[in-house]
Amino acid sequence: MTGIGMLSVEDQMAIESHLKDFLVKSESQWAALVDRGGNLFAENGDIGQVDLMIMCALAAGSFAATKELAKRLGESEFTALYHEGAHMSILMTSLHFDCLLITVFTDKTNIGLVRFYAQQTAATLNESLKSASESAANAEPLQVDSELSGETNIIS
């Protein structure tokens, strides 16, 4: 099981606020909270025309792929993963509840600054995730009125 099952409107607003604050301090371009399964929980900033779902799936996959490498070194997993480009770079930071903080930044800032604030933000997001997880555990299961039947074509 990965991540948390749901985010209330309040939890979402709190997390987005943390991400926004992080972007300002670290001078990064875009930040997102995703789970290890590739689900996008919350995001803030501007990354242009990139498909966010693909971005999250690839980032989660990339992070997961390093786990075996970490094991070979006697680590259960790496706590952060950094890919450096000529102009754009990405930092992935491990969070509790099987989640990740993904940060995309340009060469206008630097990895030291981004990593410093990412660690601070990770602690804050972990608190938010703990609160969201407790809310999710106590929430009623989602049930909506729909005409779904054995013949319904959901995708066409």
Partner: peptide
């Protein structure tokens, strides 16, 4: 569509978790 119906059935009151297909 078959697997999607199975997944969405748990959220649908009318399907009652049995929208197999």
């Amino acid at each position: 569509n078959g697997v999607a119906r199975l997944l969405l059935a748990k959220y649908s009151k009318s399907a009652g978790g049995k929208a197999g297909g």
